[in-house]
Design a protein around this nucleic acid. Structure first.
Lengths: 222, 222, 222, 222
DNA sequence: TATGAATGAGCGTTCATTCAT
DNA sequence: CATGAATGAACGCTCATTCAT
């Protein structure tokens, strides 16, 4: 159009609506209507709704992974011969997560999208994210492994996902939870506050004692 | 119909499909088709799709809250004069969560629905759950408060949500994560395993040291 | 609706519009608009546009094949021990073709549809017709074979298709050609006239002398 | 573009796709995509899709009519005072039909296009062909009239269209029919074979005895 | 002279819901 | 009590065409 590029207008509007209502509940007419762009423009520029969704993600994840890799490079350079402490790793992750969307977009939106992607039908978005951006996560996981050498691998796997769940769930539902917190405890939290609060919890979670070995018995579960 | 009640057939089918694909992605045609029930039966028996969704939840949550209240009654009776230990509270919660769906339905489905409800459009489900079943959560929260007297209220609020996020995220994505875990670490986990693994992590998370007070500075966040 | 059944209204309108404009050029909105029926009714009753097209054909071809088989039964009963003369076969075919649509529908429309089906993209209609109604054609072909014992099989195959082309082409373009004929020769032809005119031509075509055997030489052709 | 002229690229691609799928089923995106040419190029060079279709026809019919007129000139020169025999006329027609597309294009495509033009929506193509190229057909018809002086004019008109139908129908459906013929009779036919086969049939058809005069009775037909 | 971008109209299909029986 | 039929709205997408450069 005139002031902003059509593609950008679509992406900006789409990410907000997707985050607010979910993918299926957001129609292309919603998006193009709000973005004041022709309906056909989405299919012209992105090919399909599914591709638009992926483009919305890429716009967050591409700079994120790039920056994250660079931050990990720096970190490894600072600890040339010994393992990077867990706190440093988490600190780096937190900093990168905060930096990237802060530049142009909203962290809340980003987290909400991430939450949606993980709860989506058939997990096709989960698969897409895994394929495109799995390498950064793998690298991070490996560094965490070196930082927690006594933790069994399977245990670490699950604990990292516990933590991931905490982060995505809390940050993606931020608005609602913040309202409750403000009403009940009179304090207005920012994303930074929340991340500050999370840090000791995450460290404690990862370093918690191992669960007792279960007594052997056959069991089934749905 | 004949063998099973139409209402039950619809509920049984709906909960599975909702859990698999989400609410918006599951049409009444999907449900009635698979349940081999007339299309109009949903609107006839439930009034609307939204009401059907709520009915699916009620069928899980009604017995759950009832049983949970009874379990807490027992617990309070066992600790008449002093606070209930945190581990006991968590144990009771875990046991009730495991018991209820095990009777007729799937815990995985239940958790998936819970996760969807929290990530779903407009949060109308979140609101519904809060209104209908908030009392049980509030009672539990209060007992946790007594069990962790040194924790500031706001801190406890957030940590409980961190934990809630862990549980819902991990259990609702169980199938996918289980596949990865099985492939990478060769161990097949059951829901019981997972809950056993969660216990020390949750305790550690709730008892983690407080974060340092931030230096005062003005800050903004999206 | 009120006077006529919705399904019939759709079929009646569809066959006329399809015959006039072709399948791709006729939209469901064209049909439902002219039939004064809800747009969704087509998909409700037929499932898809493709199925509607096939239903239009079935309504002609089902009674046709049934009646044709019966007519051939009669014919075979009348010639218990010797071959049925070619003229009788053609006469029976012509009579059946004339009878069936005359009852409720238009022969012109039927032929036009047949012509369209044969010239259609990817020939999926041709395939459908072959599968559903090929047996009647095969039976007729076999009787023609017995009636023209001196004709090589391949030659008969091609000549039958020459004739089929004549019939479909002429009858499906009947309106336009009739206008020209009326203007130029002052005679108004009916379908019956045309079929009467075709009979000696078809017989002559099938009984024409064989072409000379070509001198052997390598040749290519697109 | 670079190697071949854009206009030619479009025409070459269009005629193939049109012949394969029909006009309505072939989009300008199909054409320009396959021709690796800009989408707007069709409208730029041809003005509209309809004009492109006509251009595709002209590229076949212009040289055909020119050559056909010349061939008829030659023929008339060889028979200065008496009528040209029917076989000679048909031979000349067949030769010209075979010659023209053989130079650069495919006869199959040409016939398929011709068949489509006759069965296509509203007959606007039929009208266009009639207007642009009717003179050649008229001249040929007149020569046939002289070659078959005993045939009533109306009869000749219809018989010529019977024959036209045979040719167009058979040649435009050549691929499918050839497959069947090859499977059932083990012989691979070329276009030349088919035309050789057609010749005696066409002669016989045109020279068939007249049909009996119908007994007078009022009759109606749809 | 070409072309990337954009457009308005229309496509087949699916949706949750309602209605008459 | 239950259901086949129907409906209006909306869906994602594709269309031929136009426009600004």
């Amino acid at each position: 159009m005139d002031q902003t590029d059509t593609v950008t207008r679509i992406l900006d509007t789409a990410e907000v609506l997707f985050a607010e209502r979910g993918f299926a509940e957001t129609s292309l007419r919603n998006i193009t209507g709000k973005a004041r762009v022709n309906l056909a423009a989405v299919n012209y520029h992105f090919g399909s709704k599914k591709s638009l969704i992926q483009a919305v993600f890429s716009r967050y994840l591409d700079p994120f992974t790039e920056r994250f890799h660079r931050a990990l490079d720096d970190l490894e350079a600072r600890y040339p011969d010994k393992d990077i402490p867990l706190e440093e790793l988490l600190e780096t992750m937190a900093r990168t997560v905060l930096e990237v969307p802060a530049e142009r977009h909203s962290l809340k939106v980003f987290m909400r999208l991430l939450g949606l992607a993980y709860s989506q039908a058939q997990g096709h978005m989960r698969r897409y994210i895994q394929e495109e951006y799995g390498s950064a996560f793998t690298r991070f996981t490996e560094l965490v492994r070196q930082a927690t050498p006594t933790l069994p691998d399977a245990e670490r796997f699950w604990r990292l996902h516990f933590v991931l769940g905490s982060v995505i769930f809390t940050l993606s539902g931020l608005d609602a939870l913040r309202d409750i917190a403000e009403k009940d405890y009179g304090e207005h939290v920012t994303v930074r506050d929340l991340i500050r609060r999370m840090r000791p919890v995450v460290v404690a979670a990862l370093q918690a004692p191992l669960p007792p070995v279960p007594a052997l018995r056959s069991e089934a579960s749905g």
